[in-house]
Design a protein around this nucleic acid. Structure first.
Lengths: 239, 239
DNA sequence: ATCCGCCTTTACGGGGCCTTCACGCCCCAG
DNA sequence: CTGGGGCGTGAAGGCCCCGTAAAGGCGGAT
């Protein structure tokens, strides 16, 4: 297991710390968030490859969080819960969790579950749709072609990956950080720090994409990608 | 996934209902049969594209049912079983099942497996072809000959395998990693690590193939194989 | 043992494109 | 109105991706 980015949503600080340390010693990157609100936000960011979710959280119900998360992201989730009964387990799986881990657990056991979930998930990877259509824009992942209003659009590798991410998550505002992390994840590259106030490469790429779209379909093209000032970018069909 | 007809053979009414609802919400048509006798009959009817089979059925052993079904139909089968041990899985796959899903499972994961099985199945459909024609290029797998615009083309073993893979997946961009893995699979060799930034053999072979194609049909030949910078190669009929 | 193909590796050159820098614009706060 | 931060985008530099010739290595055939 190398360079897996894990989000741990857990309010018990000591437990979280211990767990994180163990996982880090096995070459994982762990981010700890102690509350549900921000947990959901971080989990949906697309910057992690796995979410460990404690059910007993202050403020928000873990199951509800999981259901909401599932509407916004496909990231695998393992639920951690002190209530180890079967009912909880079934309910957990029903709201979209991928596995269920009763507390207390040994770190080793958790690691085994994590590996199993990641393996299953990557095995099922290939069946995501390999094309998306949003408004006049069609993107084919297998052929790596993008057409807008029927006109084909020349894109470089990085530009294509970015447009793919925006299109598969249309109507959703993505920060530069998210875009950067997701492109790296898409390519199977390890995560990297990224400071959007210094590194403007995402902006430049998006500028180029807009130019390419506009060249293929003057007027319509560039307008599809909107800038959300202070936040990031969003692809919106109706321009 | 659109309009997949699924047969669910399951006697636990509540579980069957829940599962069916989830699948229907993802655009599948689900027929539920709670007993083995009629299950086998319906499964062999050819009216479904996939069968989900619970092993613990009243009356008939699920494994036996699967074996009998396999004699009468090629419909893909996913076995559902409460006994999640490895032995059961092996036996299940041995009697002709396409995948094995231990209970309890998350509906989401089941859906992923269904998609994977369907994809494998449809991919395997067109695989028995012994020859492929894309544009001016004709490749005969049995005789191991390639002709372009009627002119025969001298290729070594590795070059032929590569061209075959590109031709059977024309218009699809394949990474060096994929090409390497698929050639090995084609020859029944075990998978191997492959770092395309270091190992340039794929590039060299493709260079040779282009030369061979161009020698056979100057102008047309080499242009058929396009390089997608930063990604891989794609064979495209119209050059 | 020697030769001969063929696959792999190495090396080098060319060029595409990712990044960075810079400048100017726009938006908003004060 | 004015200042500052966020953003668009042209230009430049350099990294690294790729094509291809050539050498090395390995097995099979004679």
């Amino acid at each position: 297991m190398v360079d897996v980015r894990i989000l741990l949503i857990e309010d018990d600080e000591k437990l979280a710390e211990r767990t994180a340390e163990y996982l880090q010693s096995h070459k994982a990157t762990v981010e700890i968030v102690p509350d549900g609100e921000r947990g959901l936000e971080r989990a949906a960011s697309g910057e992690h490859e796995l979410v460990l979710l404690d059910l007993m959280l202050p403020g928000i119900d873990g199951l509800e969080l999981c259901r909401k998360l599932r509407q916004r992201s496909k990231v695998p989730v393992i639920i951690l819960s002190a209530r180890g009964d079967e009912v909880d387990r079934i309910v957990g799986l029903e709201v979209g969790a991928d596995d269920y881990m009763p507390k207390p657990f040994s770190p080793r056991e958790l690691l085994a579950r994590i590996r199993a979930v990641l393996r299953r998930h990557s095995a099922a990877q290939g069946d995501d749709e390999d094309s998306v259509t949003t408004g006049p824009l069609e993107i084919d992942r297998a052929r790596r072609t993008a057409t807008i209003a029927g006109a084909s659009c020349e894109l470089t590798a990085y530009q294509f990956d970015l447009l793919w991410l925006l299109a598969t998550q249309a109507e959703r505002v993505l920060s530069r950080n998210q875009l950067h992390a997701q492109v790296r994840a898409l390519r199977g590259e390890p995560a990297m720090d990224f400071d959007p106030t210094v590194d403007r490469s995402i902006d430049v790429h998006l500028s180029k994409i807009r130019q390419a779209l506009d060249a293929a379909s003057p007027g319509r093209g560039a307008a599809m990608i909107k800038t959300v000032r202070g936040v990031g970018y969003v692809l919106s069909p109706q321009g």
